[in-house]
Design a protein around this nucleic acid. Structure first.
Lengths: 131, 131
DNA sequence: GGTCTAGTTAACCGAACAGTTAAATAGGAG
DNA sequence: CTCCTATTTAACTGTTCGGTTAACTAGACC
């Protein structure tokens, strides 16, 4: 079900660079050649080519020959794995935050009651649940 | 509106590591100390501490002193910027893919109708590359 | 053939990363 | 105060990253 974690690594890694994100945004407007993609950036062609390789290995884009050019386009399902991970995480996140909120407001109450620093006497419910 | 791109860089970068993702997943079950977070990993404590620093600089988690321990918890809005970027990208993505699909089927139709209006160079050379 | 265009590969470099061990720090407990 | 626990900081190391320039490859065009 979960794709190979490496793919997730690569996808997130690929997205961690502003140039690569810009390339993706540009590609969302439609396929483009390497040269077209490179133009807006103040960077050598080989540098762009490397970025494309990173995106390609992350399965976010595809490059195919067309005459002497190479046409780059988004890989249809490319974003899915990463997006899926994030959405799942976000669900847990919110859930966790809800739990935490109860806990925080309790602490805040204690703080505003003038217990100075640390006042951390919350029942340390060490939950061990596995999901 | 868009958060500083650096934050996006850091968030995606932080998520690009399986250890860090695992830490986040674990943290989604509730706050934990550094030691607790470290236990499941076959890695030194300082290494985990560094990962936590990365997550913290990406605003994905928070660390706060509690006696001599440090309690780590998810940062409430942490995932938002990255998630938002991805969702926006995904929208364009699909849109782009739709356009592309339409274009392709249109071309195919024209081909089968034999109308010479396809200003396209030539059909794809069946390239035998690796996939 | 030669040349022009489009892009990649190779070799290199400094900076950042991911891990290590050893020492330092902060606070609780005896 | 001393010791113990929890964690960070420091210093070091090998690897990867992101960029460069120079050389190579692939195909179009004359």
């Amino acid at each position: 079900m979960d794709p190979s974690p490496q793919l997730l690594d690569r996808a997130f890694f690929a997205l961690a660079d502003p140039t690569r994100r810009a390339i993706i945004e540009r590609l969302a407007e439609g396929p483009a050649t390497v040269g077209e993609l490179a133009r807006p950036f103040d960077m050598s062609l080989p540098a762009i080519s490397k970025h494309l390789t990173v995106l390609e290995r992350a399965r976010l884009i595809r490059r195919e020959r067309e005459a002497q050019r190479r046409l780059c386009s988004l890989e249809p399902e490319g974003l899915r794995p990463a997006l899926h991970w994030m959405e799942r995480a976000e669900a847990f996140w919110t859930e966790s935050l809800d739990r935490l909120t109860g806990y925080l407001s309790q602490e805040q109450e204690e703080l505003s009651h003038g217990t100075g620093r640390n006042a951390r006497k919350k029942p340390k419910g060490r939950r061990k649940g596995k999901v």
